[in-house]
Amino acid sequence: RLTVMSLQESGLKVNQPASFAIRLNGAKGKIDAKVHSPSGAVEECHVSELEPDKYAVRFIPHENGVHTIDVKFNGSHVVGSPFKVRVGEP
Rank of each mutant, 00 (worst) to 15 (best):
F73M: 07
V85C: 15
K28F: 04
S37K: 01
Y55V: 13
S6N: 15
K30L: 09
G40S: 10
H36P: 00
S81V: 02
K84I: 06
L2K: 09
L24I: 01
E89T: 07
E63G: 06
S19F: 04
S76A: 09
I60C: 14
H36Q: 02
L24D: 00
K30G: 05
A21N: 14
P82Y: 02
V14K: 15
L50C: 13
V42A: 12
S10T: 06
D70A: 06
K72C: 10
H77D: 11
N25E: 02
F73R: 03
V4G: 08
A33S: 10
G88T: 09
T3L: 08
G40L: 09
F83Q: 02
S48I: 12
I69S: 00
V66R: 09
D32A: 11
V42E: 07
T68C: 13
G88R: 06
P38L: 01
K34F: 06
R1H: 02
S37R: 05
F83G: 09
G26P: 03
G26K: 04
V78N: 03
D32H: 05
H46Y: 08
E63R: 06
R23G: 06
V57A: 07
A33R: 00
V14Q: 15
R1E: 15
S39F: 09
K30F: 07
P61A: 02
E51G: 07
K30T: 10
G65S: 07
E43T: 05
L2N: 15
L7N: 03
G40E: 10
T3I: 15
A56Q: 10
E49V: 09
E44Q: 15
G80K: 09
K54E: 14
N15V: 01
G29Q: 04
G40D: 09
E49A: 13
Q16A: 05
V71A: 09
G11P: 05
K13G: 04
G65D: 13
R23Q: 06
E44A: 03
H77F: 11
G40I: 02
E49C: 11
P38V: 00
I22S: 00
S48P: 09
V47I: 10
D32N: 15
G88C: 05
S48F: 11
S19E: 14
Q16I: 05
T3C: 15
L12F: 04
K84H: 09
R23L: 11
P82G: 04
N74P: 03
R23Y: 02
A18W: 02
K54N: 06
G29W: 01
T68Q: 12
G40V: 08
L50M: 08
E9W: 00
P61F: 01
A27I: 15
I22T: 00
G40R: 04
E63I: 13
T68N: 11
G40K: 06
S39Q: 09
G65Q: 02
S48G: 11
H62V: 11
P17A: 05
G26D: 06
I69Y: 05
S10H: 09
M5C: 14
V79E: 12
H67D: 00
V42Y: 12
P61G: 04
L7E: 03
M5W: 05
G65T: 01
K13H: 08
H77W: 10
V35L: 15
K84L: 11
H46I: 02
E89D: 12
G40H: 14
S37C: 06
L12E: 11
H36N: 15
P61T: 01
D70R: 07
I22K: 00
V4C: 14
P61E: 00
N25R: 11
H46D: 03
S10C: 03
S39R: 13
E43V: 05
V14C: 03
P38T: 04
L24S: 04
L7P: 11
Y55C: 15
A56S: 14
K13F: 06
N25M: 13
S6P: 10
V35F: 15
H77R: 08
Y55P: 12
